[in-house]
Amino acid sequence: MSNSVISLKNVTMKFGGVTALNDVTFDVKQGEILGLIGPNGAGKTTVFNVITGVYRITSGDIVFDGKSLVGSKRYKITKRGVARTFQNIRLWGDMTALENVITATDTHKKSGLLSGLFGMPISRKEEKRDKARAQELLDFIGIGDYADRLAKNLPYGVQRRLEIARALGTNPKLVLLDEPAAGFNPSEKVELAATIRKIRDAGYTVLLIEHDMSLVMKVSDRVVVLDFGQKIADDAPSKVQDDPRVIEAYLGVPEDAS
């Protein structure tokens, strides 16, 4: 059995009286693409938010790479190797595409403000290295030509891809993609599926939230289904598709049947 990159153990997240996640347990294994699906409001984005430290979980534990993430500062979680994209695109609009990615690569720089100020060799070396690395990532994700364009002026599809490149810039072990295909047309979705596989093949582990069922089923190695904050399925795509509980969650139960 392959190693887990991250394990959610009995994670519960309550907001006041509302339970957004209820005793959720699953893990993501090294080198897989795990699809996280569920109807609206099922708690998918909440899972991302508790992993990345936006919310602090009410109970349970989240173990990444052998150590708990709970209570760590957000930027430190990123530094340890978790990076994410946002459902509603949140690029730094006044920076170029390249600068967006370089800023992410700064996560692992040794040089800081003072070494930058005095132009120490380490700062220069790292600047040069990371600029090249950022361009590589843009090329890898297929938007290298847009490097010098301001993020806010990029076409929608390119912005979505830039979000992914920026997340990869932090050199993560685990990439969380939050609806990367939202608003894409079918041919763009096919391209994106290829890109996601390419990311996995490059050695990253991917946790994917996506509404488009056919995309998820095509690209995922395994699928976890959430409904009202609870995990109702965790299996291979083909099996999840036929799971009566999943169908029920998505289609609702006819009232007279219950």
Partner: peptide
């Protein structure tokens, strides 16, 4: 610059 434009995103991307 990243803080000015979107502080939450900056923090979540390791700044």
């Amino acid at each position: 610059e990243s803080i000015r434009q979107d502080e939450d995103a900056a923090e979540l991307l390791g700044v």
